[in-house]
Simulated scan of single mutants.
Amino acid sequence: MSLPATYVSSIDYISDCLGFLKSYQWLYNYYNTHVLVHNVFENFPLDWIDYFKAITNEELNLFPLNQLKKECPKTLQDLMEKIASLKPNIEVENIECVAEPICNYGGLSQKKYHEIINLAAAINQICRQYKLDFVLDVGSGLGYLSHLLNSRYNYKVLGIECKSEFVKLAYANQEKHHPNCHNLVKFEEHFISSESADILTELYITHFSSIGPSIGCLAGLHACADLSITILELFSKLDFMKCLIIMPCCYHRIELENESETRECFKNFPSSEKFKNIYKTYEADTYLRRPFLRLACQQTHYSFVNMSEAEHEDHAFKFLCRAILQEVAEIGKIYYCYCSRS
């Protein structure tokens, strides 16, 4: 990822992003289910509301792509143009990925299958480029990724998993479905922290030193919340790890250092000193809170561009029903609900 063409300085870019987010925080600085609780719709300019009421379903689908009608209010045009100007350049590489039959020994979903085969292909492409023969799989779960990296691409793999039952299941699945990789794919129970470098080095030596020295890749599928930061810190300490490939997720679950009604300060966000200084200047802890971090977990705008009118109405209806329930709960101070069927 690189800066938009109009920016030379990362400081200028971050400053403009924070200034933009601060100006438009009324659009996102709350949980989606709280739109009625916080009277969010009352903040929408009236000409915006008139515009959206008048456009067709096709025009609504084109709106996320910044294809606006001439009648679009100037303030709404300015918003969409600013979003476009801040969009970073994302470098996309073509990765050769072959659909792989994976033993579905744990109820593997289509989404997870897609992630596993594509991440495995990306790991292989980078490992081949740097002549690596070992992968340290952090958060290995039931061993899908670890076994695929060996069975298809011939890597030695050490899977690290914090849940003992998952480690047992990974080995049970190995015995049943991947008996030929017993010496080349190993799993260990360990809760990863920034101080795990020595333990991981010892585990590698225990399992693979007899096979020969290796240089490897540190990888993680679904490096949830603070685990992404932990993996970055570990990578800097593991000399025999030459590449890092992770798929972060669940940013809104990162650890809070302290919070109040209007501010949320996170232990590991921001992580760079440069960003921290600008963050403080713009008082970003008042609007880059968990509702903001959840946006990274939402569907992209491409999810909406082909929706029919009925699908839009169904989506809006379910959204507002949940918002109404939240409003009722807030008014009545209902925080717990229990029901059962006899």
Rank of each mutant, 00 (worst) to 15 (best):
residue 103 C to V: 11
residue 105 Y to D: 15
residue 107 G to T: 08
residue 108 L to N: 06
residue 108 L to F: 05
residue 111 K to S: 04
residue 111 K to I: 08
residue 111 K to M: 14
residue 111 K to T: 07
residue 112 K to I: 03
residue 116 I to D: 13
residue 118 N to A: 00
residue 120 A to G: 10
residue 122 A to C: 14
residue 124 N to M: 06
residue 124 N to F: 05
residue 125 Q to F: 05
residue 127 C to E: 08
residue 130 Y to W: 07
residue 130 Y to A: 09
residue 133 D to P: 05
residue 135 V to L: 06
residue 136 L to G: 08
residue 136 L to Q: 05
residue 136 L to T: 01
residue 138 V to I: 15
residue 139 G to V: 07
residue 140 S to Y: 13
residue 141 G to S: 10
residue 143 G to A: 07
residue 145 L to T: 07
residue 146 S to R: 15
residue 147 H to A: 12
residue 147 H to C: 15
residue 148 L to N: 06
residue 148 L to Y: 06
residue 148 L to Q: 07
residue 149 L to C: 01
residue 149 L to P: 09
residue 150 N to Q: 00
residue 153 Y to M: 06
residue 155 Y to N: 05
residue 155 Y to R: 01
residue 157 V to G: 00
residue 157 V to L: 02
residue 158 L to S: 02
residue 159 G to M: 07
residue 164 S to G: 11
residue 164 S to M: 14
residue 167 V to D: 10
residue 169 L to R: 08
residue 169 L to E: 08
residue 170 A to G: 05
residue 171 Y to C: 00
residue 171 Y to I: 03
residue 173 N to M: 06
residue 177 H to R: 10
residue 177 H to P: 11
residue 179 P to F: 07
residue 180 N to A: 08
residue 181 C to Y: 09
residue 184 L to N: 15
residue 184 L to E: 15
residue 185 V to A: 14
residue 186 K to C: 13
residue 189 E to I: 07
residue 189 E to G: 12
residue 190 H to I: 11
residue 190 H to G: 05
residue 190 H to K: 12
residue 190 H to D: 02
residue 191 F to D: 15
residue 192 I to L: 14
residue 192 I to Y: 10
residue 192 I to P: 11
residue 192 I to K: 12
residue 193 S to D: 12
residue 194 S to G: 12
residue 194 S to K: 09
residue 194 S to M: 13
residue 194 S to P: 09
residue 195 E to P: 14
residue 196 S to P: 02
residue 196 S to Q: 01
residue 196 S to F: 04
residue 197 A to I: 08
residue 197 A to D: 14
residue 197 A to V: 14
residue 199 I to S: 08
residue 199 I to N: 03
residue 200 L to N: 07
residue 201 T to I: 13
residue 202 E to C: 04
residue 202 E to L: 09
residue 204 Y to C: 12
residue 204 Y to I: 12
residue 205 I to F: 00
residue 206 T to E: 13
residue 207 H to L: 10
residue 207 H to C: 13
residue 209 S to Q: 00
residue 211 I to Y: 08
residue 215 I to A: 12
